[in-house]
Design a protein around this nucleic acid. Structure first.
Lengths: 139, 139
DNA sequence: ATTTAATTGCAATAAAGTTGCATTGAAATG
DNA sequence: CATTTCAATGCAACTTTATTGCAATTAAAT
């Protein structure tokens, strides 16, 4: 719990209750969350605008990263390396379950290198896999 | 040009001017387009709602596919296999240029197989690469 | 304890997407 | 090729998603 404060401190963000609560919820849920997810979870206790601004502030500071998705709704997930020097999240795999719709980051799987056409320069890679997650597979 | 009509016919869609125009623009632009892109391109000649409905109809019929993106805005691109039996688009690589923001499909590059954690079942894979495209690299 | 500036909440607005309904028009029919 | 039929379109209204400005609040620096 104390750890959450350090994440904020490390990024020179003031430690406020709102930020701690939102961070805690990301930690707990272990999957990508949308603004609507947060709004629902915190009911009316948090202002919609505050949630948007908190998400953007966390994005800018490398605490969260956006998750690519074809739903048209922005989704966010915790960066793995928060708390270290480089605040960019390493390229990794996102898994979206077709059944429960949850998106999780599979940080332990590397994206294989691949050859791009001539003159194309790669900066980052993001592999989005859709399928059935372990939880849904168990049912 | 005649070819566009056949795409519609093959999917049992009525050939209307709106659909031909939108299809033609996708063919020409060779990159993923958003609803806003189409609205801008066709100025006020096409109704917003008609564009939405045309996009959805093309999606359902496998003429277009959604492109995963972290912008939060839905983007669409032509399927490679329109006109064949299977109307699902094969998994492929999407390249988003950090400079011009265009997203294009790299149909010729295969996504490498990779091992998922236990009990995870893959259905489809989509690799999103960000970097600098050939056109921007030339300038 | 006081000051300062960032954070928050509220109101208003903009942008993105959907739904219902009347009108138009593609194509099937005789 | 005239008529009929139902899908496609355009318009209006609405919902959802996201942004901006400003006053009130509060973290933390002094």
């Amino acid at each position: 719990m104390q750890k959450l404060i350090h994440i904020l401190k490390h990024h020179d963000l003031r430690t406020t209750q709102v930020r701690l609560d939102i961070l805690a919820y990301f930690k707990k849920s272990e999957s990508a969350l949308s603004h609507a997810d947060l709004e629902t979870h915190f009911e009316k206790k948090l202002d919609r605008v505050t949630i948007y601004r908190t998400l953007n502030s966390f994005l800018e500071n490398g605490i969260l990263h956006k998750v690519p998705d074809d739903s048209g709704i922005a989704k966010y997930a915790l960066c793995k390396h928060e708390g270290t020097e480089h605040n960019h999240d390493d390229d990794h795999v996102h898994f979206k379950c077709k059944q429960c719709d949850k998106i999780e980051c599979l940080h332990d799987i590397d994206i294989p290198k691949l050859a791009l056409p001539k003159k194309y320069k790669l900066v980052s890679a993001n592999l989005l896999i859709e399928g059935i997650c372990a939880t849904c597979n168990d049912v």
